[in-house]
Amino acid sequence: MRKINAVDTILWSSGWISNVIIIAIIFFLFYNWMPLFRMVSPIEFFFGTKWYPTVVPPLYGTLPLLVATIEISLFSLILTFPISLVVTIFMTFVAPKKIRYLLKVFLEFFSSIPSVVLGLIGLSILSSYLQNVFNLDTGLNIFNASLMLTFLTIPMAASMMEDFIVSFPIEQVEGAQALGATNMEILWKVMIPGLKGPFASIAMLSMGRIFGETMIVLMVAGNAAIFPLSVFDPAKPLSATIAAEMGETAVGTSHFYALFGIGAIIFFITLVINIIGEWVRIRYEREMRRS
C-alpha cells in the first residue's frame, strides 16, 4: 500500500474541502430559494416583467433585472474589448520602452482602484455630466454603469492581452518578418488570428468579472426596476438588487427567498460563462499543440 504522508493529506483534504464548500454553497442557495415556489410560480419568477417586492401582493418578476444585467454587461464588454486592444497595441508596438514600462505600472495601479471609488466617480462626476450633456432625467443609468465597469475591466483585459502578445511564438513573428511583413501586418494577420482562442477567453473572463460586479452598478445604474430600453435608461441589475434589498428583508419571507433565487441565477450564469471560457481555452491549446 502507498504511504500517505502529511503533505499528501493536506493537499488531498484542501482539495476536497473546496469541493465540499462549493457544493454547500449551491445547496444553500437552493435551500433558501425553493420555498419561493410555494408562493410564486417559476414562470412568474423567471419571466415576469415586474419586480415590485414591497407591494401587496408582491411581484417577483426577475426578467427586467436580468435584461438590465445583460445590457450593462454586453455594452461594457463592447467598450472594454477594443479599448483594451488599443491600449495593448500602443504598449507593445508603439510606445518606447520606458513609456511601456510606465504604462504597465500604471495599469497595475489602475486595476487596484476599489470598485467603490469608481462608483463614487460615476455617481458624483459622470452622472451630472451625462445629465447635462445628453439632457437626461437622470445621469445614473446603464451608460454610466457600463462606462465605469469598462474602467474597472480594462486593466485586467489589457494586461492579459499584453501577456499573450508578448509571449506570442517568436518563430511565427520571424516567419512573417522574413516575408517582408511590417509590425502592423504581423499584428493583424498573424498574431490576432493566432490569438483568437485566448482573446475569446479574455472576453469571457472580462464578462464574468463585469457580470458579478455589484458595487458600481448599485451606485450608478439608477436602481430602478423597470424594463430598460435604451442605454440611457436607469436600471436595476441582479447583483445590485440583492445588495440593495437584502438588508431590509425579513428572514423566511417570500422576498428573502426571491433574493436567493437571484443569487442562484447569477451563480449559474457566471458558471456557464466560465465554463465556455475554459472550453475555448482548452480547444485553442489543443489546436496549437503540434502533432
Binding site: P169, E171, E174, A178, L179, G194, E287
Partner: peptide
C-alpha cells in the same frame, strides 16, 4: 530587402493557417 532575400528557419514555422494561406501570405501583404 526581405522580399528580395527570403529565409527558411531551423525549425519549420508555418503559420497556423491553411496551406494555401501560408504560401499566399507574402503576396497578400
Amino acid at each position: 530587402l526581405r522580399m528580395r532575400v527570403g529565409m527558411v528557419f531551423q525549425r519549420p514555422n508555418p503559420f497556423p493557417k491553411s496551406i494555401y494561406e501560408n504560401v499566399a501570405f507574402g503576396l497578400k501583404i
